[in-house]
Write a protein that binds this DNA or RNA. Structure first.
Length: 485
RNA sequence: GGCCCCGUCGUCUAGCGGCCUAGGACUCUGGCUUCUCAAGCCAGCUACGAGGGUUCGAAUCCCUUCGGGGCUACCA
């Protein structure tokens, strides 16, 4: 790699919303670039335009931004090696493909998909390793004439020489692949469009990528990339360093994918997971700082992250642990940040107006501190605070049955009696007055007495702290709700 | 089938030949606290897949085996 600055690339193929596995890779790419003071390059691999859509590309860009994984080269920010969408670099790839043909590294292959399929089947049946048999490595003039007469359009195939490819994977050590199991592969489709196999290698070289950290599924395609480097005339010491990251798997032991569990980052965003929690949790999937630290900020992650500390074994995604970390991160929020994160959730649930009124903002700001430590996800906020923004509460039938039947009338009327003349409307005063009347005077169990009031005020026997809630709600509405029982 | 990767508590992991009667975190269980729910605090359960070696000594090194996963496309 000579003396080039470290450059790490994240190059997803957005055939859907970015998922947990993608993001873990992006996070490691980003963290390593930041750790080394290198460049983080973001490239879109959209050579398969039948599967990649503009919406998915836009969503990928948005997701990375939302997570705070900023890139130095790539879409929107540009850079010296753009464009960073492979679909905009088509002539570059075809030039290289032509050159490979001229050099004899690649050749035109006229075999049709059906023929290929049939021969693969035959190989399997005879116990051979399936793969391209090299038929078109040399074509007779008459065959060529016949194919052309038939109107067949050739693909361009890379010639894999005899021998093997050995490279050092930073995570897995030395890897060797015998070329008997790396068949000649297609670089360019019959319609002239490039494949990943061509584009990925060409771009990594042209964009001066020094480190390729990517999913383990690409491990066995590495020899093909190296083959392209060779055809491009890149010296071995200038190949990027490879590090194949272990999978993030779903709970059912399959590779985490769109069909397996909640994997789309968009879903986590809607649920109210904080970017920092997602990154913190994902960082722990396949990597650890080496000590017992687990709660890390993004900054700490960049300081501590090295490829050497990445595990080689796959990790299972554990929602419970993510939730735990998310709760920690929410608790660590300043009131102002907490407010900013909460607002969209409150507005989406129509608990507050859009734009929020001054009065509502004031209530939200008072109420957030009392729910902050009991949240797992931001999406729980509207449900917890809704009772503060309605005229009449919806009484939960189960709660009513449990706490508002029987002698509740007495509790409620006593509460009204002592709260009405209360001189200072503060949670301390409310607490004191109710405790004196209900617990000391009437001799009731706190749990029973306060639960009755809680249900009357909030609608449920589960709520934020009662006295604080009553203070925020205001005397008028508290008394009205009590009177309504 | 072939090639490749991987294998420490239920889960994520620490461990890189003696500090390990295996540590931490999440989960779970019990308790404390308590106006509910949380949070917090304390305690507890639970692991080196198996079998051979190497060595004075192995979770750590080697081999075999079993198990899991990936690749085997004109997807990436």
């Amino acid at each position: 790699m000579g003396n080039r600055p470290i450059k790490v690339r994240f190059a997803p193929s957005p055939t859907g919303d970015l998922h947990v596995g993608n993001i873990r890779t992006a996070l490691f790419d980003w963290a390593y670039a930041r750790h080394t003071g290198g460049i983080f390059l973001f490239r879109i691999e959209d050579t398969d335009r039948s599967r990649v859509t503009d919406e998915y590309i836009a969503a990928a860009i948005d997701t990375l931004k939302w997570l705070g994984l900023s890139w130095d080269e790539g879409p929107e920010v540009g850079g010296p090696h753009g464009p960073y969408l492979q679909s905009q670099r088509l002539d570059i790839y075809s030039e290289w493909a032509d050159r490979f043909i001229k050099q004899g590294d690649a050749y035109y292959c006229y075999c049709s998909p059906d023929e290929l399929e049939a021969r693969r089947e035959a190989q399997k049946e005879s116990g051979q390793a399936p793969g391209y048999d090299g038929k078109c490595r040399s074509i007779s003039d008459e065959d060529l004439a016949r194919y052309r007469a038939q109107g067949r359009e050739p693909v361009i195939r890379m010639r894999m020489p005899e021998g093997s490819t050995t490279f050092t994977d930073v995570i897995r050590g030395e890897c060797t692949f015998d070329h008997n199991f790396v068949p000649d592969f297609v670089l360019v489709r019959a319609d002239g469009s490039p494949l990943y196999t061509l584009a990925v290698a060409v771009d990594d070289v042209l964009m001066e990528v020094t480190h390729v950290l990517r999913g383990e599924d690409l491990l066995s395609s590495t020899p093909r990339q190296i083959r392209v480097y060779q055809a491009m005339g890149v010296k071995a010491e200038d190949y990027p360093l490879f590090a194949h990251l272990p999978f993030v798997m779903g709970t059912d032991n399959a590779k985490l994918s769109k069909r397996n569990g909640e994997t789309s980052i968009a879903w986590y965003r809607e649920q109210g997971f904080l970017p920092e929690a997602i990154c913190n949790y994902l960082a722990l999937l396949g990597w650890s700082p080496g000590d017992d630290r687990e709660n890390l900020t993004l900054k700490e992650l960049t300081e501590l992250f090295t490829i050497e500390r990445v595990n080689s074994n796959p990790a299972r995604f554990d929602m419970k642990k993510l939730e735990n970390i998310n709760g920690d991160k929410i608790r660590a929020l300043t009131l102002d940040d907490f407010y900013q994160w909460s607002l969209p959730f409150l507005q989406k649930a129509k608990v507050v107006a859009t734009p929020i009124t001054n009065e509502q903002e004031s209530v939200v700001r008072q109420a957030l501190p009392i729910i902050q430590e009991r949240l797992i996800k931001l999406s729980e906020i509207p449900g917890m605070l809704a009772f503060l923004f309605t005229e009449k509460v919806d009484l939960d039938p189960d709660s009513v049955a449990k706490y508002l039947d029987g002698d509740a009338k007495g509790i409620i009327s006593k509460a009204i009696e002592v709260l009405t003349p209360l001189s200072t409307w503060s949670h301390e005063a409310i607490d004191g007055a109710l405790r004196a009347a209900l617990i000391e005077q009437m001799g009731l169990k706190p749990r029973l007495a306060f639960s009755a009031i809680r249900v009357a005020i909030t609608g449920s026997h589960i709520s934020p702290p009662l006295f604080e809630s009553m203070e925020i709600l205001g005397r008028e509405r508290v008394l009205a709700r009590l009177a309504a029982i």
